[in-house]
Amino acid sequence: MVQRLLLAGMLSGLIVALFAFSYARVYAEPNIERAIALEEGGDHHHEEAEQGTVSRDTQRNAGLLTGLVAYCAALGGLLAIGLAFLHGRLSVRPRSAVWTLTVAGYVSLVLVPQLKYPANPPGVGSAETIGTRTEMYFIMLLASAISMAVSLWISHRMARRAGAAPSIAAGLAVFTALASLLMTMMPAISETPYDFPRALLFEFRFHAALLQLVVWGGLGVLFGQAAEYMEQSGLRVEGTARRGIPNA
């Protein structure tokens, strides 16, 4: 069962990666090109900077697709492992369990970290502080994931005594409090040049956020449906076996 779920999750990730690549190629990449042109002072200087490195044509095509395939397949595999762990522990359908995992994962691993440290286009941020900024982002990501795990555990424990609605409300309240505390405690990093176009910065962050929604939402839809189908198929096979009817 776990192997089938893992295969379904990774295949769902591969399909979602194609949609995410199409979205990124059409909407996100033009903003990156504009930001690079500003950073390098024009197309001529940008072409000179590309010599001896991976070309932008490779980055925005094969490189982008490869990265998204790896990212989406890995997420699909993690969702499959999470669903296998929850199987039999929660009295919900597989589709609902998958959506619970995707929403919790998106909020804790994407939304909260990016609210504190939003994605930046080329030309924003100093190369000298990239190590510090990366470290702060991953600390925020890890702390947010731990906060979500604690909130889900509290909600699960309360559900046995107080019921579904109060336990969900308590879990949301705990995570909101912990996330707010994290965002207050973590140091702010703002290195946007004063002359950087605000419209370009907004468009880049907007499309970066929507790209993540495409990935996580697509996985919730595809893998949730696949897991539901596998559950129903397993029940039909089990029912057939109990009736003594040979499996054709």
Rank of each mutant, 00 (worst) to 15 (best):
G82I: 01
E238L: 14
P118L: 00
L219N: 08
G13L: 12
L201Q: 07
G41M: 08
I36G: 13
E29V: 15
V103A: 15
G123E: 02
Q59E: 13
L200G: 03
T100D: 02
P246W: 06
A188E: 15
E33K: 09
A179E: 03
G218Y: 07
E203I: 03
A159S: 11
P197W: 02
K116A: 02
G239P: 09
L11T: 10
A145C: 04
V174G: 03
L7C: 05
G125H: 03
M158Y: 02
H87S: 14
P30T: 02
V2Q: 15
S190E: 15
G123N: 00
V92K: 10
P113M: 01
R34H: 04
E231V: 09
L201H: 03
G88H: 04
R93V: 09
A162G: 05
P187W: 02
F196H: 06
R56C: 08
A35E: 00
A104K: 06
G42Y: 03
W216K: 06
M158T: 01
A28D: 12
G244H: 04
R242Q: 09
H46Y: 14
L68Y: 01
A170E: 00
H46F: 10
L14E: 11
L86N: 02
L14Q: 11
S91T: 13
G76N: 11
M140S: 03
T66N: 07
G244A: 06
A209D: 12
G163R: 00
P121W: 00
M136D: 08
S96Y: 08
A162S: 12
L210M: 14
M148E: 10
Q3I: 10
L86K: 03
L172F: 08
Q225M: 15
V103I: 14
A24P: 05
S155A: 00
A145W: 03
E48V: 14
S167L: 01
G77D: 03
A74V: 14
R34G: 01
H44K: 14
N120T: 12
C72Q: 06
M185F: 09
S180L: 12
K116T: 02
E228F: 04
E128Q: 04
Q225Y: 14
G82C: 00
V69G: 00
S144K: 05
G13F: 14
S147D: 07
L38D: 01
H46I: 07
A62D: 13
G163S: 01
S167P: 01
P94D: 11
F85K: 09
G77I: 04
N61D: 10
